[in-house]
Design a protein around this nucleic acid. Sequence first.
DNA 1: TTTTGATATTTTAGGCATCGATATATTAAC
DNA 2: GTTAATATATCGATGCCTAAAATATCAAAA
Lengths: 166, 166
Amino acid sequence: MSKKSASAASDTETRATSEHAPDLRLWLRTLACTNLIENHIRSRLRAEFDITLPRFDLMAQLERSPQGLKMGELSKRMMVTGGNVTGITDQLVAEKLVIREDSPKDRRAYIVKLTTEGRRSFRKMAEAHETWVVDLFAGMDEKQRSQLYELMAALKSSAAKVAAKK
Amino acid sequence: MSKKSASAASDTETRATSEHAPDLRLWLRTLACTNLIENHIRSRLRAEFDITLPRFDLMAQLERSPQGLKMGELSKRMMVTGGNVTGITDQLVAEKLVIREDSPKDRRAYIVKLTTEGRRSFRKMAEAHETWVVDLFAGMDEKQRSQLYELMAALKSSAAKVAAKK
DNA sequence: TTTTGATATTTTAGGCATCGATATATTAAC
DNA sequence: GTTAATATATCGATGCCTAAAATATCAAAA
């Protein structure tokens, strides 16, 4: 926050003033809310597993792709730059949670995979992570959650239309 | 995003796997969506006004408080650390968009204010910023937007309950 | 085959973010 | 008043993130 910036960790809702459009208020409230949750998760990951959120995210991508992923694929899926993936991967390699293998097809590329230890470690963290998220949403009832799910799909599609043409 | 830190700019929705709880999917979708929007705004601020989102956010806080704010107040409102506010303020001072004045009451503290140029500059950017946000939400109808506004209040309150105790 | 252009990754420079430590000033206890 | 505890802000180390440039490889056209 972030980030986050990260974003950005700001309680952005306080940015709104009375003459601002309702859309702006809606956006700032949404942002404040996700920052609150993301920062909470970030600090719990740090406190309980001594890992950063970006490293956790990268491992999560690899866990879904047991065959491994190229750096560029990680970059696309995580929506961050290649240089960023290089740095995070370096750290995870140093921690022996991940390995870089040469691609047999393309000598420019690496295949990044979880190590056995990395997979074991990730699964443990992912389990805790999931319960944290469940707790954070526990104050909403089932109908609210499913409404929010649909609205987020609508928002993503609305925003993607604008963000795409650039 | 952010800020991403963001913070984190990841298309986190791709982190979900089939056995994950619906709450986790909901969270990852929400995060992916806000990151998409925040990154879009961040890059437009950069491209069109050559300013970063954190600097814009800090100026937004000051615009709402014409009497100025102490560093610590900025830190609280932006929900970032004091050291972070020091750095962003340094930059804005160097750009002459903001000034640090000694507090008459407390010699430990500064009062940070927008300069005339800073206020002029901010208002111009804020206007553009607001239209960007309106555009990003334009694909949702009024009912969807007001539903989302209410659901975000519910989520914030749900999450705050958990995040607070610790 | 050689050149040309595209792709994969790393490197570099700069900004944002945290934490923990420090310097200084204020406030409270005694 | 002196001491101790608290509050305000900065600094240093570290990590995440981007954009732009550099390096290396590939693939296709000439």
